[in-house]
Amino acid sequence: MSTFKNHYTMLYKIAPFLMIIMVTWITSMAIVQLLKFRIKKKIVEAGLTDESLVKAILKDSLGYKERQQNTLKWVFLAGFGGLGLIVQEFIPYNMDESLLPYGVILIFLSVGLLFYYLLNNHLSKNNQDA
């Protein structure tokens, strides 16, 4: 029962931090979408008909390959971060005095980034050879 209480206490302490992160992320995404909408509206109002100019203004800065690599990176980070959280549940430690949970998470995230880097290098070498 004390293990449940310790986990509940940890979640209670970390919940405000997670809420701040989520509210900040949602707010920033809403602002970005609003600004994109305003730019498109200004283009329509200005009557810009030059197709190359409109494409240059609205062009996504990342190409298909960069978006694919970015997605792969986040999949590795989320997967290994989740795996680190699972492993952390099975390691005995004193929650009030130990920094072990943070170390476990950081190590798993680092391993995830390492695997992403190695896979990205392998894929880019295969593309250059082909």
Rank of each mutant, 00 (worst) to 15 (best):
M10I: 07
F80Q: 04
Y64R: 12
F37S: 00
T24G: 06
V44N: 11
A15P: 01
V75N: 11
Q69N: 11
T27C: 14
K42D: 14
Y64L: 11
I21A: 08
D50Y: 08
N70S: 14
M10A: 10
V75R: 14
L77F: 13
T27P: 04
T24A: 10
E45C: 11
W25F: 14
T24V: 08
L35V: 05
Y12P: 00
K36H: 09
F17S: 04
I20Q: 07
Y64S: 15
A46K: 15
M22T: 10
W74I: 05
M29L: 15
G79P: 02
M19E: 09
Q69T: 10
I21S: 06
K73S: 09
D60R: 07
Q33H: 07
I20T: 12
N70F: 14
E51M: 10
S52E: 14
I21Q: 07
K65E: 12
V44H: 12
K73Y: 09
F37D: 00
N70E: 10
I43Y: 01
A56F: 08
R38K: 11
A30K: 09
L18G: 09
S52F: 09
T27A: 12
E66S: 08
I14E: 06
F76G: 04
I31S: 08
K13Y: 04
L34C: 10
I43G: 01
M29F: 15
G79R: 03
K73D: 06
L18V: 09
T71R: 15
L35T: 05
A46N: 13
A78C: 05
G79L: 03
S61Q: 15
